[in-house]
Each structure stands twice: as C-alpha cells, then as structure tokens.
C-alpha cells in the first residue's frame, strides 16, 4: 500500500463506521467498487475495529 491508497482507505473506513453495523459491508463494497483490493483492505481493517476500545487503552503502568 502507498500513502495515497491509505488516504482512500482511511476515508472509506471512517465513513463506514458512521453506518449501522449491518449495512457496513454493503457500503464498503459499493464505495470501493470495482477495486477489489481496496474493498479487501477496508473490510479487513473493519474486522479489526475494536468498539469496546480495549486495545491500547488504559494505563501503561
């Protein structure tokens, strides 16, 4: 991935989070079409999204 692609990924990832979780995948497929690689990347990131916010949250010490 290059910085330019990443900005596109970022845009769609952020917009996808604004959607209901059920319609998220359809939204991403629609936005990324016909770029399958972009679709895969955004969906992969969404699958690692941590709404409970535990990863890297909390005190270090």
């Amino acid at each position: 991935m290059n910085p330019k692609t990443f900005q596109r990924v970022k845009e769609i990832f952020e917009a996808a989070l604004e959607q209901d979780s059920e319609s998220r995948e359809d939204f991403v497929r629609r936005e990324c079409s016909p770029d399958t690689e972009l679709t895969r990347e955004v969906l992969s990131l969404l699958s690692h999204h941590d709404p409970e916010a535990t990863f890297l949250e909390g005190n270090l010490f």
Partner: peptide, 16 residues
Amino acid sequence: KRWWALSRAWLRRELN
C-alpha cells in the same frame, strides 16, 4: 476519535 479508531484497527491487525 476517528483517527484513533483507524490506528487501533490497523495496529491490532499488524500485531495479530
């Protein structure tokens, strides 16, 4: 908040 969510998702994937 939005950027933090993206960074966390990205790092979580890389580290797993």
